Simulated scan of single mutants.
Amino acid sequence: MSSSPPLFPPSLIPATTTAQLPASYTMRPLEAGDYERGFLDVLRVLAPVGDVSGAAFRERFEWMRQRAGEYYLIVVVDGAAAVVGTGCLVVEKKL
Rank of each mutant, 00 (worst) to 15 (best):
M1R: 14
S2D: 05
S2C: 08
S2Y: 06
S3F: 08
S4K: 14
P5W: 10
P9S: 06
P10F: 07
I13F: 08
A15T: 13
A15R: 15
A15N: 11
T17Y: 06
T17M: 05
Q20L: 15
Q20D: 04
L21G: 03
A23R: 14
A23L: 13
S24R: 15
Y25E: 11
Y25M: 11
T26F: 04
T26Q: 12
R28V: 03
R28C: 09
R28D: 05
R28F: 03
L30Y: 03
E31A: 15
Y35W: 04
E36I: 02
R37W: 05
G38L: 02
F39D: 14
D41Y: 07
V42R: 02
V42S: 00
R44Q: 12
V45C: 09
L46C: 10
P48M: 00
P48Y: 10
P48N: 14
P48L: 00
G50C: 12
G50N: 01
D51Y: 05
D51A: 06
S53P: 11
S53I: 01
G54C: 05
A55P: 00
F57W: 03
F57L: 05
R58K: 10
R58C: 11
R58Q: 12
R58L: 03
F61K: 05
E62K: 03
E62N: 06
E62F: 09
W63L: 09
W63K: 06
R65W: 02
Q66D: 01
Q66C: 07
Q66Y: 01
R67P: 03
A68V: 00
G69P: 06
Y71N: 10
Y71E: 06
I74S: 15
V75S: 05
D78M: 03
G79L: 02
G79P: 00
G79S: 08
V84D: 08
G85N: 02
T86P: 05
G87Q: 05
L89E: 04
L89F: 11
V91S: 01
E92G: 13
E92S: 14
K94P: 12
L95G: 09
